[in-house]
């Protein structure tokens, strides 16, 4: 059980990076599959609510492997939390802690702040912004961009695709604007 003990420790960022990067050749070798997770959202639409929209009329079953892959992600995260100390208290940079304190976020006992990510927030403004609107932007934006962090930033950049570089720069630009302008404004308004 020495190895389990080893994996349970916090990981260095380089170890995480290498293993994420190795997922690219793993999927290629397993069956010539290219990493790209946002496509599963389109597949779920095509399978469940095609509504005669041409964008959802395609052979989604041919891409069914990806649905198995994301089901695996969910199971893997559960295993990491249960057996590998995956949801342990997190050490956050002091400068960020200072800013989060101004947002009234002080709970660092898990990977996500419990003050936001709980069911009791669902029918509040917080829930509407962080779950409903946030989720919508992810689904709409990634499909419009033709991929997400996995498909463009990891897979696309690995394969030296310049459109993926454009997409990644825009992901980052949107994120910088959101974290430094929109989110402070949201909390100012929520905590007023």
């Amino acid at each position: 059980m020495q190895i389990i003990h080893f994996i349970q420790q916090p990981w260095h960022w380089a170890a995480g990076g290498v293993l994420i990067g190795l997922t690219v050749p793993l999927l290629l070798l397993l069956g010539n599959k290219t990493l790209g997770i946002s496509s599963t959202l389109r597949q779920i639409c095509a399978a469940c609510f095609p509504a005669d929209i041409s964008f959802f009329k395609y052979d989604w079953k041919a891409q069914a492997w990806n649905l198995f892959f994301v089901a695996g992600i969910l199971i893997g995260a559960f295993l990491a939390a249960t057996f590998l100390n995956g949801n342990a208290p997190i050490e956050v940079a002091a400068a960020t802690q200072q800013r989060l304190q101004a947002y009234h976020l002080t709970n660092y006992s898990q990977l996500l702040p419990a003050e936001i990510f709980s069911w009791s927030n669902l029918f509040t403004w917080k829930g509407l912004i962080f779950f409903v609107i946030g989720g919508f932007l992810i689904g709409f934006g990634t499909r419009y961009a033709g991929g997400c962090t996995s498909g463009h930033s990891i897979m696309g950049l690995s394969n030296l695709q310049w459109p993926s570089l454009v997409a990644t720069i825009c992901f980052m630009a949107g994120g910088f604007f959101s974290a430094n302008v929109i989110i402070p404004w949201i909390f100012q308004w929520l905590n007023a």
């Binding site: 946002s38 992600i73 912004i129 946030g134 932007l137 419009y144 454009v166 825009c170 949107g174």
Partner: peptide, 24 residues
């Protein structure tokens, strides 16, 4: 990739997740 990228980036910072991490 520009318009969608910017929109997704805003959502990424709000939720702390991209599509893969949502499942995780």
């Amino acid at each position: 990739q520009i318009f969608g990228g910017l929109i997704f980036g805003i959502g990424w910072a709000i939720t702390g997740a991209c599509p893969g991490p949502l499942f995780a």
